[in-house]
Simulated scan of single mutants.
Amino acid sequence: MARVADQLIETLRNDIRSGALRPGDQLEEAALAERFGVSRTPVREAVRSLVDCGLLETKPRKGALVRTLSAKEIIDLFEVAAELEGMACRLAAERLTTQKADAMQERLTDCEEAAKANDQNAYAKANLAFHDAIHQAAGNNRLIEQIEQLSGHINPYRALPYGMRGRLQTSTEEHTRILEAILANDRLRADELMRDHMMLQGQRLPLILEAIEAK
């Protein structure tokens, strides 16, 4: 039973990280049990675990929902993520190899294509893949672990600004400048650009959440 619950936890965690499940989305036991072809017992166990780690929350008469963070919590998380992502850029610039450079360039191309098509879902996936390519290029497993730990909390919010006019193109341009700095082995510039990229996104989020709540 525990093994089944563990599989559910990992799948739901990935759904939240990828943005497939967004803040405020409701998780119904019956629907999850049917989706995974299991009884409600491992579903309840998985939900309890995700509530305990802060990815889900429960509300009276609503059951389990993807946790919605306060504006302060979001900014706090993005401040930490910005520093870690900046560090990844510094290390990637220092440890650059042709293979890692090619991988980052391929992911940037995916971002460019998604932005041209104005495909927000595709861009959300391409964006995470671009950042992951930088993390892999950094070559520090402890750093990657820390970023992945944060990702479960911030990734549901990363795609929210994509609905803003021109944001996909602007984000791609920011990615381009970041990669140019990494490829030029300009580690301090790459760090600065990434931190600015992350915090500009984070500071927009409270306004976007206010607009969503007003609907």
Rank of each mutant, 00 (worst) to 15 (best):
residue 126 A to M: 04
residue 137 A to K: 01
residue 45 E to T: 15
residue 118 N to K: 14
residue 199 M to V: 07
residue 125 K to L: 14
residue 204 R to Q: 09
residue 114 A to V: 02
residue 150 L to V: 09
residue 183 L to Y: 01
residue 173 E to H: 02
residue 19 G to N: 13
residue 116 K to M: 12
residue 23 P to S: 04
residue 88 A to S: 06
residue 195 R to E: 09
residue 193 L to E: 07
residue 191 D to Y: 15
residue 70 S to P: 05
residue 59 K to R: 14
residue 210 E to P: 00
residue 118 N to S: 14
residue 37 G to I: 08
residue 146 Q to T: 08
residue 159 A to L: 08
residue 77 L to C: 04
residue 207 L to D: 12
residue 166 G to Q: 07
residue 206 P to I: 03
residue 33 A to H: 02
residue 184 A to Q: 11
residue 174 E to I: 12
residue 166 G to K: 08
residue 123 Y to G: 08
residue 76 D to V: 05
residue 20 A to F: 07
residue 171 S to V: 09
residue 57 E to T: 02
residue 48 R to C: 04
residue 188 L to N: 15
residue 118 N to Q: 15
residue 214 A to P: 00
residue 116 K to I: 09
residue 43 V to A: 14
residue 184 A to V: 11
residue 150 L to K: 06
residue 76 D to M: 07
residue 196 D to I: 10
residue 144 I to E: 05
residue 171 S to Q: 08
residue 181 A to E: 04
residue 44 R to N: 09
residue 151 S to N: 12
residue 132 D to W: 12
residue 151 S to L: 06
residue 32 L to M: 08
residue 186 D to E: 13
residue 130 F to V: 07
residue 22 R to M: 14
residue 109 T to A: 09
residue 131 H to G: 14
residue 204 R to E: 07
residue 190 A to E: 07
residue 144 I to D: 06
residue 33 A to W: 02
residue 203 Q to P: 03
residue 83 E to G: 14
residue 54 G to A: 02
residue 125 K to G: 10
residue 196 D to G: 15
residue 126 A to K: 01
residue 1 M to W: 07
residue 12 L to C: 10
residue 85 E to P: 04
residue 83 E to H: 14
residue 142 R to M: 10
residue 154 I to Q: 00
residue 103 A to W: 02
residue 31 A to N: 15
residue 53 C to S: 15
residue 152 G to R: 01
residue 110 D to I: 00
residue 194 M to I: 02
residue 153 H to M: 12
residue 74 I to M: 11
residue 71 A to V: 02
residue 78 F to A: 12
residue 63 G to V: 04
residue 80 V to H: 08
residue 42 P to R: 11
residue 89 C to Y: 02
residue 110 D to F: 02
residue 153 H to E: 13
residue 26 Q to G: 15
residue 160 L to H: 10
residue 132 D to V: 08
residue 151 S to Y: 04
residue 14 N to G: 06
residue 33 A to P: 01
residue 13 R to W: 03
residue 202 G to R: 00
residue 91 L to Y: 11
residue 128 L to W: 09
residue 42 P to Y: 06
residue 168 L to E: 10
residue 94 E to C: 06
residue 191 D to K: 14
residue 27 L to Q: 11
residue 171 S to W: 08
residue 95 R to C: 00
residue 75 I to W: 02
residue 165 R to Q: 10
residue 138 A to Y: 13
residue 200 L to D: 11
residue 25 D to N: 03
residue 128 L to N: 11
residue 28 E to F: 09
residue 72 K to C: 00
residue 182 I to G: 07
residue 81 A to P: 02
residue 50 L to C: 11
residue 65 L to T: 03
residue 144 I to V: 12
residue 88 A to D: 00
residue 57 E to W: 01
residue 181 A to T: 07
residue 106 E to K: 14
residue 128 L to D: 12
residue 98 T to D: 09
residue 63 G to H: 05
residue 47 V to P: 06
residue 135 H to E: 10
residue 80 V to L: 14
residue 41 T to V: 10
residue 145 E to N: 13
residue 210 E to K: 00
residue 98 T to S: 06
residue 86 G to P: 11
residue 133 A to D: 03
residue 163 G to H: 08
residue 214 A to F: 00
residue 166 G to L: 04
residue 198 M to R: 06
residue 155 N to P: 04
residue 15 D to F: 14
residue 115 A to D: 05
residue 3 R to Q: 15
residue 61 R to T: 03
residue 138 A to M: 11
residue 31 A to Q: 15
residue 142 R to W: 11
